[in-house]
Design a protein around this nucleic acid. Sequence first.
DNA 1: GTTCATGTAGCAACAATAGCTACATGATAT
DNA 2: ATATCATGTAGCTATTGTTGCTACATGAAC
Lengths: 158, 158
Amino acid sequence: MNHDSRLSGVLHVLLHMAEHDGPVTSEMLARAMNTNAAVVRRTLAGLRERGFVRSEKGHGGGWRLGRDLAAITLADVYDSLGRPSLFAIGHRDADPACLVEQAVNVHLDGVLREAEALLLARLRAVTLADLSAEFHARFSARPGARSLESSHGGPSRP
Amino acid sequence: MNHDSRLSGVLHVLLHMAEHDGPVTSEMLARAMNTNAAVVRRTLAGLRERGFVRSEKGHGGGWRLGRDLAAITLADVYDSLGRPSLFAIGHRDADPACLVEQAVNVHLDGVLREAEALLLARLRAVTLADLSAEFHARFSARPGARSLESSHGGPSRP
DNA sequence: GTTCATGTAGCAACAATAGCTACATGATAT
DNA sequence: ATATCATGTAGCTATTGTTGCTACATGAAC
């Protein structure tokens, strides 16, 4: 497992949801992501609890956005996933007796905390509306019909 | 997922090396880190290739620093470890056909690249001499004899 | 030549996401 | 009512990487 791609995956399905009229089933979202419906339900569970998406059972059920695109930041999504670890590196021992290791931790943790603060600030500054604008710009500038066919990313009502 | 602690571990043993007169065996370093001698040799291999440490076999052998503390940055050590992944999160697909996923990647990768640049700049700015100064400050300010006994971090010649 | 220490190779353990199946729950259509 | 559809969840396996360990070859010093 190279890394945690849940944030990336959730953003992907949220934008697909936004492009689709009416609810979208886990099965449809899973096809768009080349993954499994159960994975979609599992990763969207946290967002449902916080009201960013709503789900309905039964005929005509599925997922839809619970808020406007501009009212959901990447940090909101990240938080909804349970704030998974951002970094693949870190210290061995959080509270070592060894003074040498303490000195190492002080500097290394400081560097990581700085990077984390920057990252979270950036996640707070970007909304789903920004990602959607990026997508629509790409859609308008697409090279030809082929990319529309080969991709599942076309808006449902251009 | 702060799983990869090699950078932290290597910095730890390098400072111990600096505090010790003469070569230090993998066994001694392993005891200081609560790990195994083979792990020490494995993780120090990259640093040896780049001349940051030297190793000698046989009687009286072991490891010693190959350069002055001030001439080794945290980035040097990080590079010597093979530049392992810094982040635990990332995108699912590096080059997706889906325009939506492309839009997600553009923003997410941008954020991560910014954080990575900051991180690497900080690693370049900190030297082992800085960590050593931090350690000696902590050693001078230690609360009592207890911390000297319970820790393996005391300088060999105070 | 014996001892000590590095240099590697190789394997099991562990942790986390990811993918999948299976089944219960609930809502809608007929 | 009942069949159907979709979510909600539990539980298993696969994958990928570090970590810890053993075993053994290589080389240096006594």
